[in-house]
């Protein structure tokens, strides 16, 4: 029932009884896994089939609601140009996310080190967060100039992605066990040692949670910014969606949407995997309990 996966040499039976178990055995492809994957796929197939049949039977016009088969054809036909556009948007997303990560963590560390800096800057971080990015976009665009749309997109996506990292990281840095802080002080640890050895590791679960939110938001921010500022030579996936709408090529619009969703899901899954990898050995959230 209970086991320690390090195969200890000196097991003391009376001392081992309540040790929790970490799942280290390879996952078995169980009935529940089948259900978790199979049922949504089945629902999806049913939904798409019903859509295909109903649109055909009711004679709904192509530009109002195309049949799934038409969307599939459009997806294949425009795959190259759509992927190029998606890549443009993803570049904005990744760079904005990276800058949000570095900036958010750095500012959070600064806040925790200095109460004065926190008091001075935190309200403005909140203002930046609660003001809708759509409303800020025109002024940012004026500042960067229409020939520099990429920079405008970057700034706007960064604004959206920045705050979850900052606020989660501040919370995480402050959540270090107080007794452990005392212990570090007892042994004469420097501020840097407390930060490096205690506060940063303690904040890791919070940071990873913030990154999961922020990764999705960076993509949303990039797309919204494109919608507001669409023009210029280069173009992202949002611009393709608007263009398709203007031309009533609704099936291409759907194809672009599918790619965009897939990108969002991929970002989420990568960050989720990162979280699992970083925490599986020690954090409460990675613990498997039998009751």
């Amino acid at each position: 029932m209970t086991a320690v996966d390090t195969a200890p040499a000196a097991v003391q039976p009376d001392d081992l009884d309540s040790a929790p178990v970490f799942a280290t055995a390879p996952k078995r492809w169980t009935e529940t896994t089948w259900a978790r994957v199979g049922i949504p796929i089945l629902i999806g197939i049913l939904f798409i089939g019903l859509w295909e049949v109903l649109v055909y039977a009711l004679g709904i016009r192509r530009f109002v609601l195309p049949r799934p088969s038409m969307i599939a054809v459009a997806l294949v036909e425009h795959f190259g140009s759509l992927m190029a556009s998606l890549w443009y948007t993803l570049k904005v997303t990744f760079v904005a996310f990276g800058l949000a990560l570095v900036g958010g963590v750095a500012l959070a560390i600064l806040f925790v080190q200095s109460r004065v800096i926190e008091l001075a800057l935190f309200p403005y971080a909140v203002i930046l967060q609660v003001t809708p990015v759509v409303a800020i976009a025109p002024i940012v665009l004026i500042w960067t100039g229409l020939d520099n749309v990429y920079l405008a997109l970057l700034i706007l996506a960064w604004i959206v992605a920045f705050f979850p990292i900052l606020s989660n990281m501040v919370l995480g840095l402050r959540s270090a066990d107080h007794n452990l802080i005392n212990l570090f002080q007892l042994y004469g640890a420097s501020r840097w040692q407390i930060l490096r050895r205690l506060q940063l590791p303690s904040s890791l679960p919070y940071l990873l949670g913030g990154m999961k939110i922020s990764g999705g938001l960076a993509l949303i921010g990039a797309v919204v910014a494109e919608f507001v500022s669409f023009s210029g030579g280069e173009s992202g996936i949002a611009w393709r969606i608007i263009e398709s709408g203007n031309r009533l090529e609704t099936e291409r619009m759907f194809a672009a949407l599918i790619l965009l969703s897939a990108a969002g899901v991929t970002i989420f899954m990568v960050l989720h995997g990162l979280q699992h990898l970083a925490l599986r050995k020690w954090h409460e959230s990675a613990l498997k309990r039998e009751n």
């Binding site: 320690v4 996966d5 390090t6 200890p8 001392d15 081992l16 009884d17 309540s18 040790a19 929790p20 970490f22 050995k281 020690w282 409460e284 613990l287």
Partner: peptide, 8 residues
Amino acid sequence: NAYPRELS
């Protein structure tokens, strides 16, 4: 090499 969570 055990982690604290693995201990009683």
